[in-house]
């Protein structure tokens, strides 16, 4: 890292916009949940909730945690943790689901 580069400074307004986006998504996730029964996703409810949560997580990581403006290496490092987590979940579920239902 010999070359000197300016560190990006996010504007005040962007901060506020990011916060508003997060609040809106929180409201959406509550409204879509079975607590209100506006939409019935059935078993897909878990998936929908996880998708919205991931969208929120991505916003926090990108702007608040500054990953959008950070170097490639830090992005790879942080995102790799999710990759290995998925790996862990995948193999555990592979075992447990086929144990409960061997025909799967």
């Amino acid at each position: 890292m010999s070359e000197h580069h300016e560190h990006h400074l996010m504007s005040f307004k962007t901060h506020i916009n990011v916060f508003v986006a997060l609040i809106v998504l929180t409201v959406v996730t509550v409204l879509l949940s079975s607590k209100f029964g506006l939409v019935d996703f059935g078993k897909a409810g878990l998936l929908v909730a996880l998708l919205i949560a991931t969208a929120k997580a991505a916003i926090v990581m990108g702007w608040f945690m500054h990953l959008k403006y950070d170097g490639m290496m830090n992005r790879v490092i942080f995102l790799s943790s999710f990759f290995f987590l998925v790996l862990f979940i995948f193999f555990c579920l592979l075992d447990i689901l086929t144990r409960i239902n061997p025909r799967l």
Binding site: G45, M61, M65
Partner: peptide, 19 residues
């Protein structure tokens, strides 16, 4: 601190909302 927030973003729907 943002990471702590990140964890809660997942905990909230998974614990409180989803059926």
């Amino acid at each position: 601190w943002h990471l702590v927030d990140l964890v809660w973003i997942y905990l909230f729907p998974l614990l409180y909302l989803v059926e």
